[in-house]
Design a protein around this nucleic acid. Structure first.
Lengths: 355, 355
DNA sequence: CTGTTAGCGCTTTCAT
DNA sequence: ATGAAAGCGCTAACAG
C-alpha cells in the first residue's frame, strides 16, 4: 500500500510532489508549475503551495525531473588540468555564478589524450546536459565534431583565435603573448626564451605570438623554445631555467607560459646569483597572486579568469532562455602587468627597425 | 507510436535499454543485469549483450537509473574554499580515484556561513547520494546532526582530533603544528608568530598545536597570533608580515597556516632586507610546490593531500560494497620538510628547560 | 489557470 | 538464470 499521497512529516521518509499536492489540495502538476513557472499559477494558490512546500520541507527529486523533462539541469565542464593553479579562479567564477541559478556543475577531467575527451563528452551528451563548458586542450577531429553536434549550448573557453563551435569566451592568447614578448624586447632583452609545459591549444597560440613578436624584431631563434609536455610548476620552472642556461648561456630573458614557471625561474636566478631584471628578464602569464608580491615582482599577463568562468555560465543561461541570446564571441581582454622582473634600464644593443 | 523497441542507429536518437534488448533478443532486465551484475547472467549471453551494447553505442540514462534504484551514483563533496591552492591536490586525488569507478562527483562550495553548509548538505541528501565527502569548515550543531543522520556513507576529511560522524581521513593538525612550532623553537627562534587567514576547524587545531609548543617552552604570547578571516594568499602573507613587525618589531619567526602566506612573508622579508633565516624564520604549511624551490627554500609541513582525496573516495566505495569495511579513522601522517627558511645556525638565547 | 493522462528509461520485486 | 509486471517522482501534452 502506498502512503505517498498521505501527509507525513517523518524525518527520513521522502516527501514527494503528490504529498505537497495532497496537503495543499491541488494536483501534482500545479505544484510542479508553482515551483518552476510561478507565473502560470494564480498568485493566491501559488503562495499557498509555496508555503506548503516550505512547511513540508519538500525538495524536488532531480533524477525524476531529469527523466521526465529530458533535461538534467547540469552543466558539464571539461577541463584539461586540475594541476594548474590558474584553473581555480575559473572554477570559482563558475561556482559563484551557478549558485544563484538552479544549475549544477559536473566536472570532467580528461585523462590526457583526445580519445578520453571525446569519451567524456559523449558521456555528458548522453545525460541531457543543460550546457557544456569546454576548456579544450587538444580538440581532435572527433571532439570538434562532437561539439558541433552537441545537443545543448556549448561555450568554449579561453582562446578566441579559432572559429568556435557556437559560443566562445576568453582572450586572444596569440596577441597576449605578442604584447608580452614585445615588452621584453622593448626592455632591451634580446635572447628571449619561451618556457612552457603542456602544449595545449592556448600554449600554441602563445607560441605563435611569441614567435611573431621576435620575428618582427629579427630576433627569433627556435632553439630558444624550451618546453616539456607536463604540468607547469615552480619546480619545473627552476629546472627549465637550468636547462636553458646550459643550452644557451647567452639567454637574457624568458616569456613563461604560466606564472608558476616564472616564479620557479626567478628562484633559480636568485640561487645562481643572476640578477633579475638586470641580467635576466622574466615575464609570466596569468598573473597569479604571488607574482604581484614577489621580490622582485613578476611581470605577467593578467587574464580575467574568474570573470571568464562567471560569464561562461551566464552565456549558457542566456542561451537556454532564448531571449537575449548571448554574443557568439566574448573577448574579455588581457592586461600586461609591467613589474620589476622586466624593469631593465639599460638597453644592450640597438633594436633593429622593422616594418 | 513508440519506436524505442525498434532497432536504429541514427545519430541523435537515444538508444535505450529496450533497443539493446530487442537487438540481442532478450528482455530489458537481462541487459540491465549484464551491465550491473555480470555474474548473474550466463557467460555466453552476457558476452552477446555486451557486444550489442557496444555496437549500438548504448549509454545508460543515469537519471532513469537513479530514479528507479534510488541511488544517484554521485558523491557530494562539500568543500570550504576553492580559493586555497591546497584544494587542487585533494581534488585531483578525488578525480583520479573516481575515474576507474562508476561514481561521479558533485562539488558544493558553501557560501561562508554554517546555514549554507546545512542547506547544501540537505540538498545532497535529497538526491540519494552514494556518499558524502565533508571537508568541514565550521560544523555547527545542524551540520553535525545532519552528518550523523546521513542516508549514505560520510567521510570527513582532514582533521582527526574530533570524533567523526562515521569515517575520517587526514592528519592530526594539532600535532603537525606542534611539531612545526617546536622546530622553530629548536632552531633558536623565540618570538614566533602564528599567521593565518580563514579560521576554520583545522586552523584552530593548528593554533592549539602552536600554542601548546610555545607554552611548553614558556614562550607563548597570544598577541603574536596575527590573523584575518579571509582567504590566504601570498599578498596577504606580505601584508601580515608588515602588520606583525609593526606590532612586534622583536618578532623573529612565524608559523604560517598555509604556504602561500609563507611565500608572501618571505617576499616581504626580502623587500625589507630582513635576512631569512638569520633574522627571521619562516615555516609554512601544506608544502605547496613553490616552497621547495623558493630561495631560500621554505620549511613546511607536507600533508598528503592527493592521497587523502584518493583514499576518501576509496573508503566510500568500500563502505558501499559492505565487504572489507574501511577503518573509521585513517591517519595519513605528515612530514616536516626542514629547509633553508628555518636553518638558523646560531641560537640567540638559551632554551628554557621545561617538562 | 488547473487538471488528466501517459509516459521518461530504468530497476525492483516476484515469478518461473 | 531469465522474465513480467509495476512503479520510482516528475513533467509534457493535451483538455477543459
Amino acid at each position: 500500500m502506498r502512503s505517498n499521497t498521505r501527509r507525513r512529516r517523518q524525518r527520513l521518509e521522502k516527501i514527494t510532489l503528490s504529498d505537497v499536492a495532497a496537503e495543499a489540495g491541488v494536483s501534482a502538476i500545479t505544484v510542479s508549475r508553482a515551483l518552476r513557472e510561478p507565473d502560470k499559477v494564480s498568485p493566491p494558490l501559488r503562495e499557498a503551495i509555496l508555503e506548503t512546500v516550505k512547511r513540508l520541507g519538500y525538495v524536488p527529486d532531480l533524477a525524476a525531473r531529469a527523466l521526465a523533462s529530458r533535461n538534467s539541469g547540469f552543466v558539464g565542464v571539461m577541463s584539461p588540468g586540475l594541476t594548474n593553479y590558474s584553473f581555480m579562479a575559473l572554477m570559482r567564477g563558475i561556482e559563484d555564478r551557478v549558485r544563484s541559478s538552479d544549475l549544477r556543475i559536473q566536472y570532467a577531467v580528461p585523462d590526457n589524450d583526445v580519445d578520453d575527451e571525446a569519451r567524456q563528452l559523449r558521456f555528458f551528451f548522453s545525460q541531457n546536459p543543460a550546457g557544456i563548458i569546454y576548456i579544450g586542450t587538444e580538440r581532435g577531429e572527433a571532439v570538434r565534431d562532437l561539439l558541433h553536434k552537441a545537443p545543448c549550448p556549448v561555450v568554449e573557453v579561453m582562446d578566441l583565435s579559432d572559429e568556435p563551435a557556437e559560443m566562445a569566451i576568453g582572450i586572444d592568447h596569440r596577441r597576449a603573448a605578442e604584447v608580452a614578448t614585445r615588452h621584453l624586447i622593448d626592455q632591451g632583452y634580446r635572447r628571449i626564451a619561451l618556457v612552457g609545459g603542456r602544449w595545449d591549444i592556448r600554449a600554441r597560440r602563445r607560441h605563435e605570438g611569441y614567435r611573431s613578436a621576435l620575428m618582427q624584431a629579427g630576433l627569433f631563434d627556435p632553439s630558444l623554445v624550451i618546453a616539456v609536455d607536463g604540468h607547469t610548476s615552480a619546480s619545473l620552472g627552476a629546472q627549465l631555467l637550468e636547462r636553458l642556461l646550459q643550452e644557451h648561456p647567452d639567454a637574457d630573458g624568458a616569456f613563461c607560459q604560466n606564472d608558476d614557471l616564472a616564479l620557479g625561474m626567478l628562484f633559480e636566478c636568485q640561487r645562481r646569483g643572476l640578477n633579475v631584471p638586470e641580467d635576466f628578464g622574466i615575464c609570466g602569464f596569468n598573473d597569479l597572486d604571488p607574482s604581484g608580491v614577489a621580490c622582485p615582482s613578476l611581470t605577467s599577463v593578467r587574464v580575467p579568469r574568474y570573470e571568464i568562468g562567471y560569464r561562461a555560465i551566464d552565456m549558457l543561461i542566456r542561451a537556454a532562455g532564448n531571449v537575449n541570446p548571448p554574443p557568439a564571441k566574448v573577448d574579455l581582454g588581457f592586461q600586461l602587468m609591467e613589474r620589476q622582473s622586466t624593469a631593465r634600464t639599460k638597453v644592450p644593443i640597438a633594436l633593429p627597425i622593422t616594418a
